[in-house]
């Protein structure tokens, strides 16, 4: 026998289900009067530093249909490349920027929308800068464990070419699934869950 390491097991994930809006965006889901506003619906205010952008997109299933019951969260650095988190040790992030946002996909056409700013570059573990990116987390009915991915910018070709995560993608054409379409300030990021255009999802 050897010593027991004593670690606990992580609580297992379960799907968010079709009624995720009740808990996470109740006002959007038609439950008003409990919370003043839906958490994560506003990332910026009029004092936020950095170039304003909008990111829209859809989450598309293996039959090509957009999910109308998904919930997306994003997490990103501020314009100076600092995260608004207690674990950020490099300096104080812009107090007028949350860095975190949440959007349901529309019941009509499945579109999600984030009004945010373009993030600055943040370092990889070896100090090299990663290309500007936004972290995405997707949950929905039929998704048993939240899917992590990243969105990169189409107008950052030089930075993208040296990004350590993009460089790790063995099949080069798949790296394109992480680069948004559209152009500044309106970017479009469609997420394909399955099939030919399947988005690269991350085990991070």
């Amino acid at each position: 026998m050897v010593q027991d390491l004593g670690y606990l097991k992580e609580t297992a994930s379960q799907t968010a289900g079709p009624y995720v809006h009740i808990g996470l965006t109740p006002n959007f889901g038609g439950i008003s009067g409990v919370f003043e506003s839906d958490l994560g619906s506003a990332m910026v205010n009029d004092k936020t530093l950095g170039p304003r952008i909008a990111v829209t997109g859809r989450v598309i299933d293996g039959a090509g249909a957009p999910l109308k019951d998904a919930l997306i969260e994003i997490w990103q650095a501020d314009a100076a490349g600092l995260y608004n988190s207690p674990s950020e040790t490099r300096g104080a992030a812009d107090p007028n920027f949350t860095g975190w946002g949440r959007s349901p996909t529309s019941a009509e056409d499945g579109t999600f929308v984030f009004e945010t700013i373009k993030p600055g570059r943040v370092p990889f573990k070896n100090g090299r800068l990663m290309a500007p990116h936004i972290s995405f987390w997707i949950v929905a009915r039929g998704i048993n464990i939240g899917l992590h991915t990243r969105m990169y910018f189409p107008d950052e070709a030089a930075a993208n070419a040296e990004d350590p995560l993009l460089q790790r993608i063995e099949h080069r054409h798949r790296a394109e699934t992480l680069v948004a379409g559209g152009q500044s300030p309106n970017y479009v990021f469609d997420i394909h869950l399955q099939g030919e255009k399947e988005t690269v999802f991350l085990d991070i």
Binding site: K125, L165, I169, T199, F201, I204
Partner: peptide, 15 residues
């Protein structure tokens, strides 16, 4: 129809 069929890309955590 809502599950990725390709392997996840593994990466040690960054900031």
């Amino acid at each position: 129809l809502r599950s990725p069929r390709k392997a996840l890309l593994s990466l040690d955590n960054t900031i």
